[in-house]
Design a protein around this nucleic acid. Structure first.
Length: 514
RNA sequence: CGCGGGGUAGAGCAGCCUGGUAGCUCGUGUGGCUCAUAACCACAAGGUCGUUGGUUCAAAUCCAACCCCCGCAACCA
């Protein structure tokens, strides 16, 4: 099983726009693991895209060598992934020696390959476009027009420039790729993104220039056999997905390709659904099974940008509220398929109102009642024998009818599982939260504190508590992919033989004004 | 006529496919409860469901036209 995340360009520090990729991929990976009873041979790649003029330029501005600058930035992203509690297994830097080698090998294979119609897959051509001499790079037609054909950074007029470089004959695979998308062989989720892309290529894929002359792109992987040309971002960056698993001649990469899920942002769908499949087909490799395309995070309805000065630092959120709080907000309140909005006010409201009041408080009140009313799980004849996939140590160490064992064999429910399998993660959390609210309601309806006053109602009292514990175990388990730390705490409180509560407040109330 | 998404209570959203008392969360007001993190629960107020017209016994839901917002429109990682 193989899941990938897009590799961010490291010309700036990580911001909250970067976290979606990692979190969505992580949720899926944890869900898959859970479905397989904890046993899963999983590879999970992340990385950083480090070549290119913009990075080199940024480095120069700060008086650094490009590599030194990239080292610093890449380290920040490694730190982010770790602090997000994302379980990646591989991290590819495009400046890694092994990656450079992979890119060159891929290049060589593509250069040797023929397209289905018998033509060379890589050919020399010329690319013409609007060019900024300050940026040392091309800009899109649209971008050029929007800025009045003047570079906004350098205030210099753009010039039409024509360059010699190598092209990838992506056009030869137009039909093949269209079919793969339409048939679901290469699924794009959500579907409207697939439609968007199909519409874009209705006249066929265009060939794409995949190199730059050395004089205009100094920092990159040289084209094997042509020192005058440097491999441009497309092949360099996309190849990271293959580097991670050791393609073409190390490790057991064939066990992990095609990728099961590639998580990307909406801005890079076209590269992943067009150029990337063309490269793969050129290499005679199968296409990825599924893409999850997420949207953008806005700040108070506005696009996040340095010029507006509204960039939010994910580390700050984690420092103040903890990693699960961050995961919770971005996974539930940023819709999985659409753009979503972040403000500190909204974040605080979700933290206090949902994590602290709904879930945290429920855990406290149920745990305390269990202690106070001496509830310890007892065999109950109504509960059937354990079956299904449970981690063996959990079900064997504790009584067959303890809440943990019960929760363990409880199916996660079709409502929840369907949403998860359809990658509708934010809907899945919504659903779980509805169930958590029902448990709070149950407490008020059954009033255990009243039952406790009547000795004749001991069975009823314990019945209610059992129901609550089982519910918390079940929903705790469902939350595992989203809130790993919290889930583990809930499962350990209600999952031991007898409820063991240290009195820890799961989500202490927090206000920004403090 | 480029393609697509959307316009539903103060805010954020669901409902629309498969027409029939307009629902959820937050916020506001009132009440209840005491197991709990001043938490929890109940009730209430609040909506011409973008506009206009059509089909129908009945339209947020189907059809047509129009208005407004937002993505996409291939070398922006």
């Amino acid at each position: 099983m193989y899941v990938t995340t897009a590799i961010p360009y490291v010309n700036g520090r990580p911001h909250i726009g970067h976290v979606m990729d990692y979190l969505l991929a992580d949720v899926w990976a944890r869900w898959q693991k859970q479905k397989n009873g904890g046993e899963l041979d999983l590879r999970f790649s992340a990385g950083t895209d480090e070549h290119g003029n913009k990075n080199a330029q940024k480095a120069r501005e700060q008086g650094m060598e490009p590599q030194e600058f990239a080292d610093n930035m890449s380290a920040e992203f490694v730190k982010l992934v770790d602090r997000l509690n994302v379980g990646h297994t591989d991290f590819v830097r495009t400046t890694d020696v092994r990656h450079v080698a992979t890119v060159q090998k891929i290049w060589q294979k593509l250069a040797d390959a023929k397209s289905p119609d018998g033509q060379r897959l890589i050919y020399k051509g010329s690319y013409e476009g609007w060019y900024c001499e300050g940026c040392e790079g091309f800009v899109t037609e649209k971008e050029a027009e929007e800025n009045g054909f003047v570079c906004p950074d350098h205030k210099k007029p753009l010039v039409k420039l024509k360059e010699e470089n190598y092209f990838l004959r992506a056009s030869a695979f137009s039909e093949r790729i269209r079919e793969a998308i339409e048939s679901g062989e290469m699924q794009i989720v959500p579907e409207f993104r697939a439609k968007e892309f199909l519409n874009l290529i209705r006249d066929g894929l265009a060939d794409v220039s995949v190199t730059r002359p050395r004089r205009s792109l100094s920092w990159g992987v040289p084209v094997p056999g042509d020192e005058e040309q440097v491999i441009y971002v497309w092949i360099d960056a996309l190849a990271n997905y293959l580097t991670a698993i050791g393609y073409p001649d190390s490790g057991n990469w064939a066990d992990f390709w095609p990728a099961d899920l590639q998580v990307i942002g909406k801005d890079i769908l076209r590269f992943h659904a067009g150029i990337w499949p063309a490269i793969l087909l050129g290499l005679d490799l199968p296409l990825p099974r599924r893409f999850l395309v997420h949207g953008y995070v806005t700040i108070g309805g506005e696009k996040m940008s340095k010029s507006i000065g509204n960039v939010v630092d994910p580390f700050e959120i984690i420092d103040r509220f903890g990693v699960d709080a961050l995961r919770y907000y971005f996974l539930r309140h940023i819709p999985t398929f659409d753009d979503g909005d972040f403000t500190w006010e909204k974040f605080e409201a979700a933290y206090n109102g949902e994590l602290a009041n709904d879930l945290g408080n429920l855990v406290s009140r149920v745990a305390k009642m269990c202690e106070k009313y001496n509830f310890s799980p007892r065999p109950s004849s109504q509960i059937s024998a354990p079956r299904g996939r449970c981690s063996p140590n959990l079900s064997s160490q504790v009584g067959a009818n303890s809440p943990s064992a019960v929760a363990c064999r409880m199916p996660l429910g079709p409502d929840f599982a369907q949403k998860m399998d359809a990658l509708r993660f934010s809907d899945a959390v919504d659903w779980v939260w509805g169930e958590i609210q029902k448990l709070n309601r149950l407490v008020d309806e059954r009033k255990p504190w009243v039952l406790a006053k009547d000795e004749g109602k001991l069975d009823e009292l314990h019945g209610v508590l059992r129901e609550l514990c089982e519910g918390l175990m079940l929903f705790g388990k469902m939350l595992a992919p989203f809130l790993p730390e919290t889930s583990a705490k809930v499962l350990s409180i209600f999952g031991t033989d007898g409820v063991k509560y240290s009195g820890e407040i799961l989500f202490p109330k927090k206000y920004m004004k403090d």
